[in-house]
Amino acid sequence: MLDSPELETPGDDLIEDAARWLASLDAGSEDMRAFEAWRDADPRHAAAFAEVAGTWHALNDLKHFKAAPFAPAGPVTDAEVAEQDENPASSPTGSRRTLLRAGIGIGVLALAGGSFTYRAAARDMASTDIGQRRKIVSGTDMAVDLNTDSRIYWKDGAPLQLWLERGEIAIRLVAGNSLSLITQGGTFHLAAGFYNARLRDESCELTIIQGQGRLGDDPKILAAGETALATAGLATVRRDENEIDRVTSWRSGTLVLNGESLDYALAEMNRYLEHKIVIGDPGLSKLRIGGTFDTADPSEFLLALQTSFSIRTRRDGNGGVVLTRA
């Protein structure tokens, strides 16, 4: 992609190169390996890329801070959202709790019952089906990304309240707010920050990417970088460097594996698939897998299995995929 011209002054053109790499990675038109080769060729490349990524990141926050000026009583349509976005300077009006709006890519807000009616005491709901992802913005205070097969309810107030009923979410809470995250494993009290919460059996796993929190009445502070597994109101805390990558990668539609077993890999992959992949040969389940895979399209993952481990795949009668040794 980057046939870099010979006469380049470092500083400036590196920023452009880095921006081109980021845009191509974002659009999926370049592969990681080529990018890594470029980045690793010179730490200046890495610095330029990090700087551009910083801008990319800062622009994300823009999305969360931008006040939606108006929440109509019916479903929000693409056209209306686009119109609002044309006018970023318009000031927030009306009650904050009405300022609910999903990203334009989703088109229509599917709130409880499919239409949005203002009910002062009611909770709002959002959910995703298998394979879907979606972003929900609550006024200017909170943005929640829902992973596949998830459901949340939330309610305005101080603190904000958020119920995680199913699946996995990432929460970005803007400074000046606090949040009670109510789950089957216990209630987390969170300060402003960035969190990932996932239900597992009877427990809830909370990873603190930024910010801090507590579980229930326990005075112990959970700090950034820690993952707390809450079961029946009690937390088990661990700290794992790879955890952050793992819990944030789903937001970009990827599954990151660092030598986990095929069992684990499939369990993760299957969360996103209507037609599950199953192991047809018990001997395969302990294979160790590494790599980054697209959760929307398992073919890449299956191909990797085939080429690296000579695993054969066949469709069963219901559309599922069965793995066997070749």
Partner: peptide, 19 residues
């Protein structure tokens, strides 16, 4: 798509420089 990519890259570079 590649034009989208070019616009994004250009915009990102300009904003990064301005920051």
């Amino acid at each position: 798509l590649s034009t989208v990519e070019k616009h994004l890259a250009k915009g990102l570079a300009l904003v990064t420089r301005a920051r």
